[in-house]
Design a protein around this nucleic acid. Structure first.
Lengths: 232, 232
DNA sequence: CTGTCAGTATGATTTATATCATAGTAGTCT
DNA sequence: AGACTACTATGATATAAATCATACTGACAG
């Protein structure tokens, strides 16, 4: 299968209107923007770009789920972020004009809108309110990254896993479509350890799970766990 | 000693002109901005704000050195960032309108320019080019944070320490004014472990050090070390 | 010039977590 | 239906790094 355009211009405009970054624009502005955007379909597992690529495009996710990841020197996969419909990605590289700092992979079959770097930048110059919105989003991402830095540097695996689940559920609700491997790669641990700890959480009635899906049953207990060691 | 204003309006304007964010402004604009800014002196160890405070001010560091840090649930200090003259801090909270996500402490006696949140926001609305500059800076910080996330989640302590030193030296040059404790808090390890590993680096002729100061002698070897385990 | 304290150093011991090994299980592709 | 593969599970073992303990050293304050 190829990267065929799969969206009509109208559908593309509608999709952009639902995005966090561009939702404030007028219909006319959106129509203009969507003329700059190209829809692309990505099968599950395909990469939108790789770490180190020169950044030609800025992306808005329309449908599906995108995983942003880096590889450690030993080849271990580290998941930096997960994005859902309406979120932008690849923006850091575009704004800085340097190579993409991480790779972006479709976790499931996804549709994205790609906007050429230069087109985006000139659009932004003409639309300052969008720029303020972007600052807001980047601020939020920086805040989240800082929280995770603290977790990775200062918390034990059990706390990190609990926080990872809480963070995901704040975005996605109680039902989380992730494998233990993905959870482990987000929390900075191994699949085995994630399985063991999530097994304990399951025994404790805090979560339930089926293959590839984790459901949070007791958010309060999970939060308690994330605050520190069980015995205080 | 109290937080007395210690800068004349002219000196304040000159300081803002040297900052990363505002360096592109005209003298008239800078003068207008400096009327919104208040200079504050912070003794070493004093905090500009604490994690959780409501964000009233946005800061530009004029002289000195600022440490941005968070505390883990066990009370361990995790250093999120170090800033030098001309850099902004406290901005995430201001742009998001939520509590400061981390604390900011003067590492040495420092002078800062504080701008009220609302004043800054209206100034930004009137000066879109500054907003673009901010996006650029935030992008850079996000990139750095993502790199550190990967390091903390996927690299061994020795590699993390090496990368921490390299990152600092990219900003500050070969001579780094940090204690082993600070280095450890940045690399997400303990003081003892940092001492041991830096001791090895010293024996290997890669760094030299005096109390509170580390000098990088062999950046190439350090980079090699940061790439992976010694025996490949 | 002496006491105090933060920084540096080093050894012994513990422990959390990675690693290695093996196996069951549920989707999915043909 | 059968085969294949990704996901989940669990035990045994190894180990990197934390923790605990003790001491030396240089800087600075009184």
């Amino acid at each position: 299968m190829k990267d065929a355009d799969t969206l009509s211009p109208e559908a593309l405009t509608a999709a952009l209107k639902k995005s966090l970054v561009f939702s404030g624009l007028s219909d006319a502005e959106l129509a203009g923007l969507s003329r700059l955007a190209a829809a692309r379909r990505l099968e599950a597992g395909r990469y939108a770009f790789w770490e180190g690529d020169t950044p030609d495009y800025f992306y808005i996710l329309i449908t599906g789920r995108i995983k942003v990841l880096k590889h450690s020197s030993q080849g271990k996969e580290v998941i930096i972020a997960f994005f859902g419909p309406g979120e932008m990605f690849g923006e850091v590289a575009v704004f800085e004009g340097r190579a993409y700092p991480a790779s972006a992979q479709a976790a499931v079959e996804s549709q994205v809108a790609a906007i050429k770097k230069d087109d985006l930048l000139s659009f932004l110059t003409a639309h300052p309110q969008v720029v303020l919105r972007i600052i807001n989003i980047l601020g939020g991402r920086l805040r989240e990254a800082q929280g995770r830095l603290k977790d990775l540097a200062g918390e034990r695996v059990e706390q990190r896993l609990a926080r990872t689940l809480l963070m995901l559920s704040a975005k996605l609700g109680a039902s989380l479509p992730f494998t233990r491997q993905e959870i482990a790669d987000m929390a900075g641990t191994t699949t085995e350890t994630a399985i063991r700890i999530l097994g304990r959480l399951k025994d404790g009635g805090i979560i339930s799970s089926t293959r590839g899906e984790i459901t949070i049953l007791n958010q309060d207990k999970l939060r308690l766990l994330s605050e520190g060691p069980p015995q205080v």
